[in-house]
Design a protein around this nucleic acid. Structure first.
Lengths: 139, 139
DNA sequence: ACTTGCGTTGGAGTGCGCTCCAGGACGTAG
DNA sequence: CTACGTCCTGGAGCGCACTCCAACGCAAGT
């Protein structure tokens, strides 16, 4: 095959630094089946191929956008089953995408509300302060 | 004072339904000091004032936007200390606001990346499928 | 030969945010 | 009086995503 040039493979330390997961998390992802079994060198040490690293970056993206590891596992298992699972993977991914869009929109609304509250605090302080509340300041 | 009209007070059931937290969570928030002690009726049952409900809605907003309960507790304790803590509360709130802005931006970037992946899957399927990968499909 | 450093494994522990439960008290309907 | 529904309290338990640890293996450096 084309690849398998040893210098392209990375140790766990480098991968951790490069994808932004801890070594422990990398091992945990593997044990949990989010990542296919990683190749080993003569001393049982993990050697990550560039393809593997790419996959890990995808997982980080999914994780960061709120996908539960349970779904990442499903996604990983599908990927291991080859091209036939493309449609199913697409469905998973695009459902996740849609949820993300909704979440971003919701956060946008929440941001507006938060800005309103910040503004009210600024006013309270700018004016004579003391809103006259004996308890948490209402809304 | 003006308020304290009994019909404006709500039981835990109604408050739960109205703010979107479970009764257990409401009780837990109180025990954890996120909410000041709630008034009780003759049978030790909680009666929430409109002000309290407003405060709970604020907590829900903060929670939904990712504020840890630890910070909500700080915020609550400050609020209990009256108007003198307005500046500190403002600082807390606006720091949270800034983090939220950053998070929304980051999610926007992630959404773009995700859209790229979705698009690639669509192409793979539309074309003859099979991307020729013996493993997770790279990036 | 010995130390140092980096990796390995399986399993236990952690922090967060709830969630559930047992045991009990109250008020109302039948 | 009894039964029922709703709420109370304190405390245990849970799901998630890690994170830490002990005990060990291997290889290079001194």
């Amino acid at each position: 095959m084309t690849g398998t040039r040893d210098e392209e493979y990375l140790g766990i330390r480098e991968v951790a630094a490069s994808v932004g997961l801890s070594q422990d998390t990398l091992r945990w992802y593997e044990r949990e089946g989010l990542v296919p079994r990683v190749e080993r060198d003569g001393s049982r040490r993990r050697r990550y191929s560039p393809r593997h690293v790419g996959w890990l970056r995808t997982l980080v993206l999914l994780r960061r956008t709120g996908m539960p590891t349970r779904d990442m596992r499903r996604f990983g298992r599908l990927a291991a089953d080859g091209a036939a699972t493309h449609p199913e993977r697409l469905a998973l991914l695009s459902a996740h995408r849609d949820r993300l869009v909704a979440r971003i929109a919701a956060l946008g609304d929440d941001l507006a509300a938060l800005d309103g509250k910040v503004e009210r605090y600024r006013e309270l302080i700018a004016q004579g302060r003391d809103c006259g509340a004996p308890l948490p300041d209402g809304d």
